[in-house]
Nucleic acid binder design. Structure first.
Lengths: 203, 203
DNA sequence: AGATTTACATACAGACATGTATGTAAATCT
DNA sequence: AGATTTACATACATGTCTGTATGTAAATCT
């Protein structure tokens, strides 16, 4: 077949990744055949196997294309607890407004089996959790030092609770299609969660 | 083949369910073939198809065999917050001590794609979440009435936060094989989560 | 300008899973 | 005791997916 320009090839690759995400989210990772992805992208499996080693590799590309939801570095203003809340709110905001992010995370949390080649992805997720813990522990440490939070707040333990809260919130938010469980009140939920750690400000 | 007694047949069915759970947890639901399950159980696919319509049906049986983790009704002593905590602790205790429960929940949370015939299972899980909300909202309502918690604690909102916490805790606990993220401190985590809702008892 | 890659499409070979149809001997029913 | 189910095992028919091998015309390199 006629060889494509490097730029065209990059576009093809990107189309494959985008379509893979959509098919994954419709049919689940294990059930999607590379044939389906290829057709959706207007190419053949030849193109898919040219750009990616196998389905697991393609899955990694889907994750990378979307990137990470939570980026506390984006928030530099306000006290530690305000920055923590801003980061969490922004993550959930992105799910609400960015369809790509929504699809990717729905695949990761509800439509993927972490087995075989995908077991390593689960370890990745746990590494991300460890990073989360480090960052949030830092926030709580600062909050205690600045007297925003009670002196007997254990930063590491509180961070773990926040991690659980966040993980569960993501998972439930994605599944809560009619909004009755958590979707309608995400904002308040996050605000309240952080506020509960603040001194003298029971909610 | 020689017909089995009703009792023998029931044993066969149970063996199939047990083996299905193990294979699911090893290979993921989508990747397990009924042939593998059958072999593991010492029968042929004929037996599997006799007892179950298809893989989804078998999956339901696996869930039913294990039952539900969280049963607040088991705890009748203590105040509302104590009963809530006892329920949560018991659920995580069961994961720790009951291998069957552990396998089932690992399958449900990490090794199953909620797509196609399994989409309805996700709705089941969300229904269970609604029930959780009802029960926990009741606990918090009682806590407020009994002055265990601040009067401006919103029971419904607090219950949603607890739901997120619990969902995330389960998921992370199951993935945290080396215990660094949450497994080592589950007990404290739960205690702290509930305690934070109690008046005058910051942790 | 010629040599070499590249970016795919096409073709091939094999494995594997599913659902159903059929067979059968013993358990259960009447 | 005979008729009927039952609890499977066996056999069949079919579809689907994977990975690789090969072909090819145009980009890119020198």
């Amino acid at each position: 077949m006629a060889r494509k320009t490097k730029a065209e090839a990059a576009l093809t690759r990107d189309r494959i990744v985008t379509c893979a995400r959509q098919v994954f989210s419709r049919e689940g990772v294990t059930n999607t055949s590379l044939e389906t992805v290829a057709k959706e992208a207007g190419v053949t499996r030849g193109a898919v196997y040219w750009h990616f080693r196998d389905k697991a590799d393609l899955f990694m590309a889907v994750r990378q294309q979307t990137g990470t939801l939570l980026r506390f570095d984006d928030f530099r203003t306000g006290d530690a607890l305000e920055r923590l809340e801003a980061g969490l709110q922004a993550a959930l905001d992105r799910l609400r407004t960015d369809r790509q992010a929504l699809e990717t995370y729905e695949v990761m949390l509800w439509k993927c089996e972490y087995v075989g080649a995908f077991a390593s992805v689960r370890k990745d997720l746990m590494s991300a959790s460890s990073l989360f813990l480090t960052e949030v522990t830092e926030f709580y440490g600062e909050a205690v030092r600045m007297k925003l939070a009670s002196a007997d707040l254990d930063p590491a333990l509180a961070a773990r609770e926040t991690l659980c809260f966040y993980a569960g919130l993501l998972k439930l938010w994605l599944a809560d299609e009619n909004g009755v469980t958590v979707r309608a009140e995400v904002r308040q939920l996050i605000t309240q969660h952080v506020a509960r750690r603040r001194l003298q400000k029971a909610v």
